[in-house]
């Protein structure tokens, strides 16, 4: 059952899962982080109030957030095809994961930034800081522990999505679980995959908590 061929397969799938998770997380943050900042800054009473921008962006985020992942995966196939030239494999899954996770990241970031005390922002305003300076030098560093904690939730969510993508030819540990565990009825393989995924989640989460605690100067 666990011959060298199988081990190589699992190792490759493991690598694919990590690649999908890390790559999609990074890209989801590249898109979602600025969106989170814009959501916070543009709201009424924010540092750069833009009600229209806030409403539209909020609606877009909510729209994508409410589409179930598997349906999104199928629905954006033409988009995926156009971006990476294929709709199967880890690369294609990454595209879908980014589209699904970016709005999630935007909301996570928004929540973290809103935890920053309004008074501190006001103090910065009273010193003549621009909205951009407030975002970069007040909101970002002050919210950093919370953002880091959020990022461990985001990556574990993406990992969970990536396993789902495995059902639809997305590769990774999820694909092995479905091909060997489900179609061939090999329960051992399936549970090995489950344990591997749980391990990755545990590592990501404790790393997030550890770094966040370490960074936080509020004691």
């Amino acid at each position: 059952m666990f011959d060298s061929e199988m081990i190589a397969l699992v190792a490759q799938a493991f690598g694919e899962s990590i690649f999908m998770t890390v790559a999609s997380s990074i890209m989801a943050y590249v898109i979602g982080l600025p969106m989170g900042f814009i959501l916070v800054a543009s709201e009424e009473g924010g540092i750069a109030p833009m009600p229209m921008v806030n409403k539209i962006l909020g609606a877009v985020v909510n729209f994508f957030r409410s589409i179930p992942f598997l349906i999104l995966l199928v629905a954006i196939m033409p988009f995926t095809q156009a971006i990476v030239g294929t709709v199967i494999g880890a690369k294609a899954a990454t595209v879908v994961l980014v589209v699904a996770a970016a709005p999630f990241v935007a909301r996570m970031v928004e929540t973290s930034l809103k935890e920053v005390d309004r008074g501190v922002i006001e103090a910065a305003e009273s010193m003549g800081a621009t909205p951009f300076e407030i975002m970069r030098k007040v909101l970002l560093p002050e919210a950093m522990p919370s953002l880091l904690l959020g990022s461990s939730i985001v990556t574990t969510t993406i990992l969970a999505y990536s396993a789902m993508a495995g059902f639809c030819g997305g590769g990774g540990l999820g694909a092995i679980a479905i091909n060997y565990g489900y179609y061939r009825g090999d329960r051992v393989i399936m549970w090995v995959m489950v344990v591997l995924i749980v391990l990755i989640v545990a590592v990501l989460q404790s790393a997030g908590i550890y770094i966040s605690k370490k960074k936080d100067k509020r004691l």
Partner: peptide, 24 residues
Amino acid sequence: ASGLREKRREIGMIFQQFHLLMQK
């Protein structure tokens, strides 16, 4: 807006709850 920011540097302000940057 930028003129006002410039002018605000001539006016210091302190608050009841201090409003310091907690991570600095």
